[in-house]
Nucleic acid binder design. Structure first.
Lengths: 342, 342
DNA sequence: CCGGTTTCTGTAACCGGTATCAGCGGCTGT
DNA sequence: ACAGCCGCTGATACCGGTTACAGAAACCGG
């Protein structure tokens, strides 16, 4: 590895001059500069990031912490983040907290390698977020309820929830089940609250109960379907008549849940008896005909990147909270019209 | 930020002793050590990664370069990578080359921040790979044809291609179209070659032509469908009779292509006339009933991480080439049995 | 009580950059 | 001819750790 001292010696100048020639061309005499550049080129000099960062006391990198990248949701957010981070010349470190026991260590370690951290959803427990905030880490929270003092970017569940509820009511639904544990994650809580409020605001006589699940994945969607079908053993019950217990509509906290639930209902031959909706609009939702709420995932990431950049620039000190719009996507899963009974 | 010197002063010892107490407990007297640890704890001392890395001349980080994270494919590979990298305490930097003009700069820059690089698929042009190799960067290539001198991990297309071909032949297919440009990427080339060879080896009288597309996405899948339907204008042609031109089976280079193609065929009411297969087994494939070849994506990433770790440890110097198995997943899209004509 | 180990600790030289500050040469003004 | 200024460059002190080396303290046998 050739260092700045090698270049200096070879070019017959001091290291200070080399540094200046490479970073602030104006303040060094043109022919000296030319000589330095030529030498640097010839020796294939690549300034060490470590040296530079140590001297500049910055990392030129930001970290993204997320629960998991398997679902399409966070992957897209990360992509959005990466694309604008790359534009401004900032590297991106990633870290998943899924199945990690030492999240605290993992995250503080990451904080030590970055100028700032972006936290996606429920990846990090709240006390740790507060600790990071207290120690002066630059933070942006994505899809997580805003601490008033921390930058955040989320999606507005309200408008889409209203549209979703209106759509379901129009189709005749009056009894609802929300699948997902509002206590588990802030975004789930948010969605649940938005739907509840939309129902309340509708003026219709409706009822909504909660069916909590641990994880927002397909397996739990299937389990939820079984629970709705009153089939606690997990075996098929195509012949029972669950009409009295099935709700008119099942609003799932995310698409994966909804897809699993839908699949299980279809297996049981009961998919025509209940309206199902998801949340996120993952790719598979289109193929399953799932009515859902589309999230601007890349935009979430991109916005987070811009917010963090503003913090690090110092161009802004007051915290900001961005709210991105969502969009209801109506497909076939949410309507009973044209579906004949088994 | 409290530094090692603060701790040393406060504990009444030298910085060397602090360093030793923290990293090699054995060689410092127990009570000195206790005093240092107590002080470090009290001052909330977190050793600077930069200082440490500069002194140790390593980054404790690895970079992953990929084309895009939007599809589920690379996202899963990255997850697999991250999980084992985290285990061994190595940070993960990511960088997407999608739509990037200065890939060279981007990648060499990243190389300067990492101990090693993992390159996924066609993210990086071959000359650049060779340049990195020449400059001594530790490399692992994933889903990319192996340079004999560089560690690599790929999936074995052959066995699954054979199974796929056998399956299609059994269903009666004799004329084939391969959608995807073998010249575009190495993995596409690999898949095409595997299918060709399987056809040749089958002993049956078959024909396969290539329908090249630029990008392996859904839009191009739809375009491919239009091309097959001889509908170059892009409008619907549900009433023409394309039986003479439609192949028996369409083998797509990946699932996204196949899904788009399938959707377009369905719109045109022609989905019952042709067998369609994909490659990768993304989540949506299940919902679309797409027959496809499942890739062990997380395993790809995890294996890459282990290979890189071995390189960096110095426990192995000779290059290694891992080949992971794939699995044929037969669903409904690949068979014409039970599908009635329009 | 003394020389020789052994064990522990401190000093200082790195790692590879940035940035301050002083110095040097050339120019101008008188 | 000389003071003063300006433009450029070099020496060097950082940034925050690790580690080689030397020296001090403790311990041991004789």
């Amino acid at each position: 590895m050739t260092t700045i001292r090698d270049v200096a010696r070879e070019a017959g100048v001091s290291i200070a001059t080399v540094s200046r020639a490479l970073r602030d061309p104006a303040i060094v005499k043109p022919d000296t500069r030319a000589k330095v550049l030529e030498t640097a080129e010839r020796l294939q000099f690549r300034p060490s990031h470590l040296g530079r960062q140590l001297a500049e006391r910055r990392h030129a990198a930001a970290g993204v912490v997320f629960p998991d990248l398997s679902g399409p949701y966070y992957a897209d957010v990360v992509m959005g983040y990466e694309s604008v981070a790359a534009e401004v010349g900032r590297s991106v470190l990633i870290s998943s907290t899924r199945g990690r026991a030492d999240v605290e260590k993992q995250v503080t370690d990451m904080a030590g390698r970055c100028d700032g951290l972006v936290i996606l959803g429920p990846a990090v427990p709240e006390p740790l977020v507060q600790h990071l905030k207290a120690t002066g880490t630059h933070l942006v929270l994505v899809a997580r309820p805003a601490d008033a003092g921390i930058d955040s970017v989320s999606t507005a569940a309200t408008s889409s929830a209203t549209a979703l509820v209106r759509h379901l009511l129009d189709d005749g639904a009056r009894t609802f089940v929300f699948v997902g544990d509002p206590a588990a994650g802030p975004d789930v809580a948010d969605r649940h609250a938005a739907v509840s409020q939309a129902l309340a605001a509708s003026g219709e006589q409706t009822r909504m109960s909660i069916l909590p699940v641990d994880d927002l994945d397909e397996t739990n969607g299937r389990r939820a379907a079984d629970a709705l079908l009153h089939d606690t053993t997990g075996t098929r019950t195509p012949h029972c008549d669950p009409s009295s217990t099935l709700p008119d509509a099942v609003v799932c906290a995310n698409d994966e849940l909804a897809l699993g639930l839908l699949a299980r209902l279809t297996e049981a031959g009961q998919e025509h008896r209940v309206r199902v909706t998801g949340w996120d609009d993952v790719m598979a939702a289109r193929w399953a005909g799932l009515t859902t709420v589309r999230q601007p995932m890349r935009e979430l990431g991109a916005t987070a990147a811009r917010l963090l950049e503003e913090q690090l620039d110092g161009t802004r000190t007051a915290p900001r909270h961005e709210l991105l719009d969502t969009e209801l996507v109506v497909r076939t899963s949410s309507t009973l019209l044209g579906k004949e009974p088994a």
